[in-house]
Nucleic acid binder design. Structure first.
Length: 271
DNA sequence: ATCCAGGGACGCG
DNA sequence: CGCGTCCATGGA
């Protein structure tokens, strides 16, 4: 068990930021995340965050996963200095982190995300893992692993409609096939810069600009990626009719994008 | 009922 | 290239 004081970090915000579909608040202040083949329980009270794992696992896995060495305070200051809208967004979403999630998991998650809403995306992924993953027991809870490309690539193209993926079933199955057959290398992708990785990702069936940007941001940690979805498009049209000043983001456009995204989805509730 | 949700492939001109 | 259209599913 590891307890740290962490600035600009809020597990509840991270949970509902729409980048991680396998993290839940189980009760107020208590959380579970499933990543790769690991499960972790966490709790948070104010700045005090407790990771229910060994010091070694914290250092080698979760510190990086939650991007604990990233300088989010300077990002927040920068957002406040940019304009009033971003200052408001950052004040509500200031505890968000850009996680370093598994590449294959992000590819599938954001293939499923298209023309879909967040609660339903979460259910689709649960269905997928329960049906095709393997059951594991962590110290604190049981969960299902995320099915490997080999597993999903062998299915019929419509088989995942059974998991409620709808027309996205064939996107996942065909992409899984491309990877399982070796015509698409996940490892090679990890060594590429943003632009190259983005272009490469779009060779997967069902991956367009927006999905590629989400994968670049939430898995490959290319912070300059700026996914434009329906919410962001609407917000930009309203608040930045002359275009969003990406050049002022210092290569961290993705973090600002997350502030805006979170704000647009949660500004009505509370406050 | 109709619209919409973290879009993209495909076919047309 | 820039534009419609279709694609499943479920909640509001």
């Amino acid at each position: 068990m590891v307890t740290k004081e962490i600035q600009a970090f809020d597990l509840e915000q991270i949970c509902s930021s729409g980048q991680c579909f396998r993290m839940r608040m189980t009760e107020p202040g208590s959380f579970r995340v499933t990543a790769g083949n690991r499960g972790l329980k966490l709790s948070q009270q104010g700045k005090k965050v407790t990771f229910f794992c060994t010091e070694e696992e914290f250092e080698t896995v979760w510190k990086s996963y939650f991007d604990l060495e990233g300088d989010y305070l300077s990002c927040l200051r920068q957002a406040v200095s940019m304009d009033e809208y971003l200052a408001g967004a950052a004040s509500m979403a200031g505890g968000i982190r850009i996680l370093r999630q598994d590449l294959w998991e992000m590819i599938v998650s954001f293939l499923i995300s298209q023309q879909n809403n967040i609660p339903r995306i979460q259910r689709c992924i649960e269905n997928l893992c329960r049906t095709y993953g393997e059951k594991r027991e962590s110290e604190d809870f049981s969960y299902y692993t995320f099915p490997e490309p080999e597993k999903l690539g062998n299915l019929e193209e419509d088989a995942l409609k059974e998991c409620n993926l709808g027309y996205r079933s064939k996107y996942v199955v065909r992409s899984a096939r491309q990877i399982a057959e070796g015509s698409f290398s996940l490892e090679r992708l990890k060594s590429m810069g943003y632009e190259e990785a983005r272009g490469e990702l779009r060779k997967l069936f069902g991956v367009g600009e927006k999905v590629a940007d989400c994968i670049c941001l939430f898995s490959l940690h290319h912070l300059e990626a700026f996914p434009v979805d329906t919410h962001i498009r609407q917000a930009l049209a309203l608040h930045y009719p002359g275009g969003f000043p990406r050049e002022k983001c210092g290569g961290k456009e993705g973090i600002f994008q997350q502030y805006i995204f979170y704000y647009e989805l949660h500004k009505e509730k509370e406050k």
